[in-house]
Protein backbone atom coordinates (compact mmCIF):
# COMPACT_ATOMS: atom_id res chain seq x y z
CA UNK A 1 0.00 0.00 0.00
CA UNK A 2 1.20 3.44 -0.89
CA UNK A 3 0.22 6.33 1.32
CA UNK A 4 0.09 10.02 0.56
CA UNK A 5 3.54 10.27 2.04
CA UNK A 6 5.16 7.99 -0.54
CA UNK A 7 3.26 9.78 -3.27
CA UNK A 8 5.00 12.99 -2.32
CA UNK A 9 8.35 11.28 -2.27
CA UNK A 10 7.94 10.08 -5.85
CA UNK A 11 10.13 12.27 -8.02
CA UNK A 12 7.66 12.88 -10.82
CA UNK A 13 9.70 15.63 -12.44
CA UNK A 14 12.40 13.17 -13.51
CA UNK A 15 10.07 10.40 -14.68
CA UNK A 16 11.18 10.95 -18.26
CA UNK A 17 14.75 10.01 -17.44
CA UNK A 18 14.43 6.18 -17.67
CA UNK A 19 12.96 6.66 -21.15
CA UNK A 20 15.85 8.91 -22.19
CA UNK A 21 18.24 6.39 -20.71
CA UNK A 22 16.68 3.48 -22.58
CA UNK A 23 17.27 5.27 -25.88
CA UNK A 24 20.76 6.25 -24.84
CA UNK A 25 21.67 2.64 -23.99
CA UNK A 26 20.42 1.39 -27.35
CA UNK A 27 22.30 4.18 -29.12
CA UNK A 28 25.47 3.35 -27.18
CA UNK A 29 25.51 -0.11 -28.74
CA UNK A 30 25.75 1.38 -32.20
CA UNK A 31 27.45 4.66 -31.33
CA UNK A 32 30.30 4.26 -33.82
CA UNK A 33 28.29 3.97 -37.05
CA UNK A 34 25.77 6.49 -35.70
CA UNK A 35 28.42 9.14 -35.08
CA UNK A 36 29.96 8.48 -38.47
CA UNK A 37 26.53 9.07 -40.04
CA UNK A 38 26.12 12.26 -38.05
CA UNK A 39 29.38 13.54 -39.36
CA UNK A 40 29.82 12.17 -42.88
CA UNK A 41 26.78 13.62 -44.61
CA UNK A 42 27.03 17.24 -43.43
CA UNK A 43 30.82 17.14 -43.78
CA UNK A 44 30.55 16.14 -47.42
CA UNK A 45 28.05 18.91 -48.05
CA UNK A 46 30.17 21.44 -46.31
CA UNK A 47 33.50 20.45 -47.84
CA UNK A 48 32.17 19.63 -51.29
CA UNK A 49 30.12 22.78 -51.66
CA UNK A 50 32.47 24.89 -49.60
CA UNK A 51 35.59 24.13 -51.61
CA UNK A 52 33.93 23.26 -54.92
CA UNK A 53 31.38 26.01 -55.17
CA UNK A 54 33.44 28.30 -52.96
CA UNK A 55 36.25 28.35 -55.54
CA UNK A 56 33.86 29.88 -58.08
CA UNK A 57 32.46 32.46 -55.71
CA UNK A 58 33.78 35.74 -54.40
CA UNK A 59 33.57 36.21 -50.65
CA UNK A 60 30.01 35.88 -49.37
CA UNK A 61 29.06 38.49 -46.79
CA UNK A 62 32.71 39.38 -46.48
CA UNK A 63 33.99 35.88 -45.67
CA UNK A 64 35.07 32.84 -47.73
CA UNK A 65 32.09 30.73 -48.80
CA UNK A 66 33.19 27.80 -46.64
CA UNK A 67 33.01 29.98 -43.51
CA UNK A 68 29.60 31.21 -44.60
CA UNK A 69 28.36 27.68 -45.18
CA UNK A 70 29.56 26.39 -41.79
CA UNK A 71 26.71 27.95 -39.79
CA UNK A 72 24.10 26.70 -42.24
CA UNK A 73 25.54 23.20 -42.12
CA UNK A 74 25.50 23.17 -38.35
CA UNK A 75 21.84 24.21 -38.14
CA UNK A 76 20.87 21.86 -40.98
CA UNK A 77 22.65 18.94 -39.40
CA UNK A 78 21.06 19.50 -35.99
CA UNK A 79 17.64 19.83 -37.63
CA UNK A 80 18.07 16.63 -39.59
CA UNK A 81 19.29 14.66 -36.62
CA UNK A 82 16.35 15.72 -34.40
CA UNK A 83 13.89 15.09 -37.23
CA UNK A 84 15.14 11.62 -38.09
CA UNK A 85 15.18 10.60 -34.44
CA UNK A 86 11.62 11.78 -33.73
CA UNK A 87 10.24 10.46 -37.01
CA UNK A 88 11.79 7.18 -38.10
CA UNK A 89 13.32 6.05 -34.79
CA UNK A 90 10.48 7.18 -32.55
CA UNK A 91 7.96 5.67 -34.97
CA UNK A 92 9.75 2.32 -34.72
CA UNK A 93 9.54 2.45 -30.96
CA UNK A 94 5.92 3.60 -30.92
CA UNK A 95 4.40 1.63 -33.75
CA UNK A 96 6.61 -1.32 -34.63
CA UNK A 97 8.31 -2.41 -31.41
CA UNK A 98 5.47 -1.25 -29.13
CA UNK A 99 8.08 0.08 -26.71
CA UNK A 100 5.84 2.96 -25.72
CA UNK A 101 2.92 0.62 -25.01
CA UNK A 102 5.16 -1.45 -22.74
CA UNK A 103 6.28 1.65 -20.85
CA UNK A 104 2.72 2.92 -20.46
CA UNK A 105 1.90 -0.21 -18.44
CA UNK A 106 4.40 0.93 -15.80
CA UNK A 107 4.03 3.92 -13.46
CA UNK A 108 5.16 6.20 -16.31
CA UNK A 109 2.58 7.98 -18.45
CA UNK A 110 2.55 9.34 -21.97
CA UNK A 111 3.95 12.71 -20.95
CA UNK A 112 6.96 10.97 -19.41
CA UNK A 113 7.48 8.92 -22.56
CA UNK A 114 7.25 11.90 -24.90
CA UNK A 115 9.45 14.09 -22.70
CA UNK A 116 12.03 11.30 -22.69
CA UNK A 117 11.86 11.15 -26.49
CA UNK A 118 11.99 14.96 -26.79
CA UNK A 119 15.05 15.28 -24.60
CA UNK A 120 16.71 12.27 -26.19
CA UNK A 121 16.29 13.66 -29.72
CA UNK A 122 17.58 17.00 -28.46
CA UNK A 123 20.62 15.30 -26.95
CA UNK A 124 21.33 13.36 -30.09
CA UNK A 125 21.04 16.42 -32.29
CA UNK A 126 23.36 18.31 -29.95
CA UNK A 127 25.88 15.59 -30.65
CA UNK A 128 25.51 16.26 -34.39
CA UNK A 129 26.05 19.94 -33.71
CA UNK A 130 29.17 19.18 -31.70
CA UNK A 131 30.51 17.01 -34.53
CA UNK A 132 30.16 19.91 -36.98
CA UNK A 133 31.57 22.33 -34.44
CA UNK A 134 34.67 20.15 -34.18
CA UNK A 135 35.15 20.43 -37.93
CA UNK A 136 34.67 24.20 -37.71
CA UNK A 137 37.33 24.38 -35.02
CA UNK A 138 39.77 22.11 -36.81
CA UNK A 139 39.45 24.00 -40.10
CA UNK A 140 39.52 27.36 -38.32
CA UNK A 141 36.26 28.51 -39.89
CA UNK A 142 35.54 31.01 -37.10
CA UNK A 143 36.53 34.50 -36.04
CA UNK A 144 36.16 34.36 -32.25
CA UNK A 145 36.52 31.04 -30.46
CA UNK A 146 34.59 32.16 -27.37
CA UNK A 147 31.56 33.06 -29.51
CA UNK A 148 31.55 29.60 -31.14
CA UNK A 149 30.87 28.13 -27.69
CA UNK A 150 27.49 29.87 -27.75
CA UNK A 151 26.68 27.56 -30.68
CA UNK A 152 26.17 24.78 -28.13
CA UNK A 153 23.02 26.29 -26.58
CA UNK A 154 21.93 27.27 -30.10
CA UNK A 155 22.21 23.62 -31.13
CA UNK A 156 20.19 22.59 -28.07
CA UNK A 157 17.42 25.05 -28.91
CA UNK A 158 17.40 24.03 -32.57
CA UNK A 159 17.31 20.35 -31.66
CA UNK A 160 14.52 20.96 -29.16
CA UNK A 161 12.52 22.86 -31.77
CA UNK A 162 12.72 20.15 -34.43
CA UNK A 163 12.28 17.32 -31.92
CA UNK A 164 9.00 18.87 -30.79
CA UNK A 165 7.84 19.40 -34.35
CA UNK A 166 8.93 15.91 -35.39
CA UNK A 167 7.03 14.25 -32.52
CA UNK A 168 3.83 15.97 -33.59
CA UNK A 169 4.25 14.62 -37.13
CA UNK A 170 5.08 11.18 -35.74
CA UNK A 171 1.82 11.23 -33.78
CA UNK A 172 -0.33 11.39 -36.92
CA UNK A 173 1.77 9.23 -39.21
CA UNK A 174 0.15 6.00 -40.45
CA UNK A 175 3.47 4.61 -41.74
CA UNK A 176 7.09 5.44 -42.59
CA UNK A 177 6.18 6.73 -46.07
CA UNK A 178 4.23 9.58 -44.50
CA UNK A 179 7.47 11.21 -43.32
CA UNK A 180 8.37 11.91 -46.91
CA UNK A 181 5.62 14.56 -46.95
CA UNK A 182 7.17 16.27 -43.99
CA UNK A 183 10.61 16.22 -45.54
CA UNK A 184 9.32 17.40 -48.92
CA UNK A 185 6.86 19.99 -47.67
CA UNK A 186 8.62 21.29 -44.56
CA UNK A 187 12.29 20.34 -44.28
CA UNK A 188 13.39 20.88 -47.89
CA UNK A 189 11.68 24.29 -48.25
CA UNK A 190 13.35 25.31 -45.02
CA UNK A 191 16.76 24.28 -46.31
CA UNK A 192 16.21 26.27 -49.51
CA UNK A 193 14.59 29.34 -47.92
CA UNK A 194 16.24 29.40 -44.50
CA UNK A 195 19.65 30.53 -45.67
CA UNK A 196 21.70 27.34 -45.38
CA UNK A 197 23.52 27.71 -48.71
CA UNK A 198 23.13 31.40 -49.55
CA UNK A 199 22.11 34.63 -47.86
CA UNK A 200 18.39 35.39 -48.06
CA UNK A 201 19.00 39.12 -48.47
CA UNK A 202 18.39 38.95 -52.22
CA UNK A 203 14.86 37.48 -51.78
CA UNK A 204 11.93 39.65 -52.85
CA UNK A 205 10.06 41.07 -49.87
CA UNK A 206 7.24 38.53 -49.92
CA UNK A 207 9.63 35.57 -50.00
CA UNK A 208 11.77 37.07 -47.28
CA UNK A 209 8.64 37.48 -45.17
CA UNK A 210 7.82 33.78 -45.58
CA UNK A 211 11.39 32.78 -44.82
CA UNK A 212 11.47 34.89 -41.67
CA UNK A 213 8.81 32.66 -40.11
CA UNK A 214 10.62 29.38 -40.68
CA UNK A 215 12.17 27.74 -37.60
CA UNK A 216 15.40 26.96 -39.45
CA UNK A 217 15.78 30.66 -40.36
CA UNK A 218 15.81 31.51 -36.66
CA UNK A 219 18.46 28.88 -36.00
CA UNK A 220 20.67 30.21 -38.79
CA UNK A 221 20.14 33.83 -37.74
CA UNK A 222 21.65 32.77 -34.43
CA UNK A 223 24.41 30.50 -35.69
CA UNK A 224 25.83 32.53 -38.58
CA UNK A 225 26.84 35.72 -36.72
CA UNK A 226 28.38 33.60 -33.95
CA UNK A 227 30.69 31.96 -36.47
CA UNK A 228 31.43 35.27 -38.18
CA UNK A 229 32.47 36.76 -34.83
CA UNK A 230 29.43 38.82 -33.85
CA UNK A 231 26.60 38.55 -31.35
CA UNK A 232 23.39 37.85 -33.26
CA UNK A 233 20.84 40.65 -33.65
CA UNK A 234 17.47 39.98 -32.04
CA UNK A 235 19.01 37.03 -30.23
CA UNK A 236 16.22 36.65 -27.68
CA UNK A 237 13.54 36.79 -30.33
CA UNK A 238 15.14 34.02 -32.37
CA UNK A 239 15.73 31.90 -29.27
CA UNK A 240 12.14 32.44 -28.13
CA UNK A 241 10.84 31.50 -31.59
CA UNK A 242 12.75 28.20 -31.55
CA UNK A 243 11.52 27.47 -28.05
CA UNK A 244 7.94 28.34 -28.99
CA UNK A 245 7.95 26.15 -32.10
CA UNK A 246 9.36 23.25 -30.11
CA UNK A 247 6.89 23.64 -27.28
CA UNK A 248 3.92 24.00 -29.60
CA UNK A 249 5.06 20.86 -31.41
CA UNK A 250 5.39 18.98 -28.13
CA UNK A 251 1.96 20.00 -26.85
CA UNK A 252 0.42 18.97 -30.15
CA UNK A 253 2.36 15.69 -30.03
CA UNK A 254 1.07 14.95 -26.55
CA UNK A 255 -2.55 15.50 -27.53
CA UNK A 256 -2.32 13.68 -30.83
CA UNK A 257 -0.38 10.70 -29.48
CA UNK A 258 -2.85 10.37 -26.61
CA UNK A 259 -5.62 10.21 -29.17
CA UNK A 260 -3.68 7.62 -31.11
CA UNK A 261 -2.57 5.28 -28.32
CA UNK A 262 -4.86 5.92 -25.36
CA UNK A 263 -8.45 6.11 -26.48
Amino acid sequence: MYTLDSRLRGNDVMNWFPVWRRNFLVWKKLAGPSLLGNLADPMLYMLGLGYGLGALLPDVGGVPYLNFLAAGTLAYSVMNSASFETLYSAFSRMHVQKTWDAILNTPLDLRDVLLGELFWATSKSLLSGIAILLVIWVLGLYEDFALTLVLLPVAVLTGFCFAGLGLSINAVSPNYDFFLYYFTLAITPMVLLGGVFYPTTAFPAWLAAVAAWLPLTHAIELARPLILGQWPQGMLLHAAALLAYGMAGFVAALGLTRKRLLR
Partner: peptide, 28 residues
Amino acid sequence: VGVVPQVDSLDPDFTVAENLQTYGRYFG
Protein backbone atom coordinates in the same frame (compact mmCIF):
# COMPACT_ATOMS: atom_id res chain seq x y z
CA VAL B 1 0.86 -4.16 -10.99
CA GLY B 2 2.58 -6.36 -13.54
CA VAL B 3 1.31 -6.53 -17.12
CA VAL B 4 1.81 -9.17 -19.80
CA PRO B 5 0.50 -7.55 -22.98
CA GLN B 6 -1.03 -9.45 -25.87
CA VAL B 7 1.55 -8.23 -28.39
CA ASP B 8 5.25 -8.82 -27.86
CA SER B 9 6.93 -5.59 -26.80
CA LEU B 10 10.37 -6.71 -25.67
CA ASP B 11 13.25 -4.43 -26.64
CA PRO B 12 14.92 -6.18 -29.59
CA ASP B 13 18.10 -4.12 -29.18
CA PHE B 14 18.71 -5.38 -25.65
CA THR B 15 19.74 -8.71 -24.18
CA VAL B 16 17.47 -10.67 -21.85
CA ALA B 17 18.97 -9.12 -18.70
CA GLU B 18 19.06 -5.62 -20.20
CA ASN B 19 15.35 -5.91 -20.93
CA LEU B 20 14.66 -6.60 -17.27
CA GLN B 21 17.00 -3.84 -16.09
CA THR B 22 15.46 -1.26 -18.40
CA TYR B 23 11.93 -2.23 -17.48
CA GLY B 24 12.71 -2.17 -13.76
CA ARG B 25 13.95 1.40 -14.07
CA TYR B 26 10.51 2.49 -15.30
CA PHE B 27 9.30 1.54 -11.81
CA GLY B 28 11.96 3.68 -10.21
